[in-house]
Design a protein around this nucleic acid. Structure first.
Lengths: 158, 158
DNA sequence: CTTCATGCAAAAGATTTGCAAGTTC
DNA sequence: GAACTTGCAAATCTTTTGCATGAAG
């Protein structure tokens, strides 16, 4: 289920560097490490998980630097918010693959991805009507999955 | 712009009490105060704001109790998550009024609500297909509003 | 050599938990 | 009376910030 490494291409690097320059920011080893390291990620991850994964792959970037560069990475189109899960926000690599939204089982925590053209289109229409320029979106349906519906459902107050 | 108080009806109280019983939980003054106090709220609010508002209206419920009863209130259909804003989660009274989703300007923080029948329908279809029983959803479009697009847009790293 | 970025440690802010005392059933 | 709730204070966990040092332009 793990996809092979998809290392940063030359073009991607260049685009990121140009973006940094355009923003009047500085080109640092850490920022390039972030780009390279993140590009190799798959699936959803929290900042903490990302730092762990980067550490395993010998990219040396502190958690603080990740936090401080989050919005840069998102503006540059490298990362995007996936969804918010309990305490922390999950991110994912922004790739060419179509947006996917999430069905979340609040019982077992299972996450199912979905894509729906009608929804994507409707979103565009709404943004246009309201004058917004959309940069990202998050769309989650929260409920109970089939398996958990069958299981005896018990309410937990704490 | 402030709507008149919409006090808890007898039927609502009874339904909530039955729900508590069904869950094998206890009927406490605090829980009833929460129901009554929350029913008078309008708009979006964080737990902190809710506690403030309850305090102003002389409902005596501690913040801890609000937190501990959040999921009860949501399962009982009294409250629902509105959207996550920066650090905290915003809630709103679950009423008969149609779901509304949000356009969020990441520049000025402005929130615009929208409702779209096509989206609502598509969601239902997806849930059905995946076997989920949907209890709530959150749908946010993040971008830049018209006003902020005109303003000189500056990227902030910190 | 000036300004920005990093890492560390400490702070901040939201939510959760341990515990003793008070309530509900 | 046993089990559940509450409020308080302390703990947790994520994210942010202050500061001194180091790197980029």
């Amino acid at each position: 289920m793990i996809k092979p490494d998809k290392p940063t291409t030359h073009a991607e690097r260049e685009r990121f560097q140009k973006f940094i320059k355009k923003m009047g920011l500085r080109l640092t080893r850490e920022r390039m490490d972030l780009l390279d390291g993140i590009k190799k990620q798959t699936g959803h991850f929290s900042v903490d998980e990302l730092v762990q994964r980067l550490k395993e792959r010998r990219y040396r970037v502190s958690r603080d630097t990740v936090y401080r560069n989050l919005s840069l990475l998102m503006e540059a189109g490298v990362l995007q918010t996936s969804y918010k899960s309990g305490r922390d926000t999950l991110y994912e690599v922004k790739s060419g693959r179509p947006h996917h939204d999430h069905l979340f089982c609040r019982h077992c925590g299972r996450v199912v991805e979905f894509v729906d053209k009608r929804i994507e289109k409707a979103q565009q229409a709404i943004a246009r009507k309201k004058g917004f320029k959309i940069e990202s979106h998050s769309h989650q349906l929260v409920g109970v999955c089939q398996k958990c519906q069958k299981t005896n459902r018990q309410f937990m107050n704490r």
